[in-house]
Write a protein that binds this DNA or RNA. Structure first.
Lengths: 342, 342
DNA sequence: CTGTTAGCGCCTTCAG
DNA sequence: CTGAAGGCGCTAACAG
């Protein structure tokens, strides 16, 4: 059916291996025969078959993208955007992206993604948190791997991360600049690497401003950074008598939770409470009041990750860590605190 | 490195072809030897290589997804959702999805997607409108193809379409039920197949209610169904003296355009003007007033398309057309018309 | 019911 | 600088 390398060879009066050589720039070919071959290729509209090439030189032309399904529901926009960023950048490298999602918190051991079993990828991107066990098993296969937005400890592969510390510092500094002094930090899962880094940034900003931190002002709830957990954590803090004038949230989702809880508690936003998110998902610009937040360029995150991966695949080399920058987005959820009664 | 079928054969004391046979359920194998083979497979943690299998039986295990980039910008949510629906369903069929976007309206001839040139897909899904030329060229390759949400005329492949006519009829009927009689239709590109069908549904509803249609009430603008074109078309109509009490839009994007234009014209929504969209993108629930619209289940659209494609690939057969249903979503942008001055 | 043989289409030695 | 030969891992056809 479709022309093969032999058809081209025959038409150009050369051996298949010579055609292969010009296809892959492998050895010097006399200009004249090269031209003859190229024209034969054009005439036949020939393109090498992916499967054949893959079998011969053990390369698939694909990369795998693994993401926890808890982070990739049809609604959740964050990793969807990261994926699209990867996908888009992949085209520039003649790579396709095979997507798979795994159960983030399932008890039963996660099966290895099929594309890895079938040796159908040249490298793997792992986005967000996935079970440590899976991480280890993927590493064992010695496939080039890059972690995206998840600082899996004891995983000595390359990582592309958000500058969480800097983002949280900026968020907190913004509130301090407005005059706030009682600033809470509301998170979900406490030991999530990103949450840890963001909390650290919050602490640094407080320290720089010589504002004493306080245990009561740092609340966490549950094992994900979700709206529900944000709501619960804030409500608990508020009802226990701790009343900050501003809140830095672990991410936008928790911020929405705080927003809901605050309304429940009859607090007026932003007058009674200023709120900072983190991520800048689409929703953030659309809630009332619109959420001030730290913007993460999700497509750029994905694109960078792909570039790092390609570099590892083609050039090899050791594990690297890259941080992508963030940007403070001031919207309507932050304002100076009310006058102090005193 | 990784075990091959020969390793398995050796361990199980059989020939490679026998292993292949059990792998593919190709012929009767004595229960005992089959068991021996299976246990060898397990012991070695063997999975056939995709490339090798692909070369041997000319199948890639991939399907291609082609979409016009004008419909797949990082912001546009519609086809992104369709894609995710496809992707999700594909897992149930052990298929991966290779994505590519093409220039929708470019003048220069679109190059054939690489996955087609490399014979790296078993079938193709084409989402939304793409250049006719490309459509034809894809068809010539005789790869199983399914068109999604685009009724390319003179393209005798299978199609999975939205029930546009029914949707527009329901939208219009909803406005008629509220008491509206002067109902406009605002669209972008006039000869887009979907727009044509939606206009037809609008006409049918009017006819059923014995409301005479009017040329002035049907306006189109530009060559895409965009916010901008919706805005322009409505403004033009209004300024020319045609003042409906309600508008059925070709899709949500044009509805947003009408909404903007209406505000510009100092019309209060929905009191002065009721508005119906079509698609139900995320934004629709978040604008002010929230948009009443016709919901299309985008994931389902994608999933259905994939199933139809798989059917064509595995079972063969002729071209079919499938319509996926829609649902009226009543939000805040529709209400009865003001009392008539009379 | 199972083994042998011969490719699938490409790439990579190694001679010439 | 080019051609011939062999193999990547799997499946298909045909014997037995």
């Amino acid at each position: 059916m479709a022309p093969t390398i032999r058809d081209v060879a025959k038409l150009a009066n050369v051996a298949p291996s010579t055609v292969s050589a010009v296809l892959n720039d492998k050895r010097y070919i006399k200009a004249e025969t090269r031209a003859r071959i190229l024209s034969a290729i054009q005439k036949l509209d020939y393109t090498p078959s992916r499967s054949a090439r893959g079998l011969a030189n053990r390369t698939s032309g694909n990369i795998g993208f693994i993401v926890a399904n808890t982070h990739f529901s049809h609604a959740e926009p964050f990793y969807t955007r990261v994926f699209l960023g990867v996908e888009f950048e992949a085209r520039h490298h003649d790579l396709y992206v095979l997507l798979t999602s795994v159960n983030g918190k399932a008890q039963k051991p996660e099966p290895m993604p099929r594309f890895l079993l079938e040796q159908n990828v040249d490298g793997v991107l792992i986005a967000g948190r996935v079970p440590d066990k899976l991480l280890k098993e993927v590493m064992q296969r010695k496939v080039p791997t890059v972690l995206v937005d998840y600082d899996g400890k004891a995983c000595d592969c390359s990582k592309v991360l958000i500058d969480n510390e800097e983002g949280a510092r900026a968020a907190t500094a913004h509130l301090l600049d407005l005059g706030h002094r009682d600033i809470a930090f509301v998170g979900g899962e406490k030991d999530h690497p990103s949450a840890v880094e963001r909390l650290r940034g919050y602490h640094q900003a407080l320290a720089t401003a010589k504002v004493a931190p306080s245990e009561e002002l740092e609340v966490f709830e549950g094992d994900t950074m979700s709206t529900e957990n944000g709501s619960k954590a804030f409500t608990r803090m508020w009802k226990s008598g701790t009343h900050p004038t501003a809140v830095v949230c672990a991410n936008d989702a928790t911020a929405f939770g705080v927003q809901l809880a605050a309304k429940e508690l009859k607090l007026k936003l932003p007058e009674d409470l200023s709120l900072m998110g983190f991520d800048d998902v689409v929703m953030s610009g659309l809630v009332d009041p619109p959420l001030s937040t730290i913007r993460v360029d999700k497509e750029e995150l994905g694109a960078t990750a792909l570039r790092v991966l390609v570099d590892r695949i083609r050039r090899g080399g050791g594990a690297t860590t890259t941080r992508v920058g963030v940007e403070l987005i001031q919207r309507g959820s932050t304002m100076p605190p009310r006058e102090k009664k005193n």
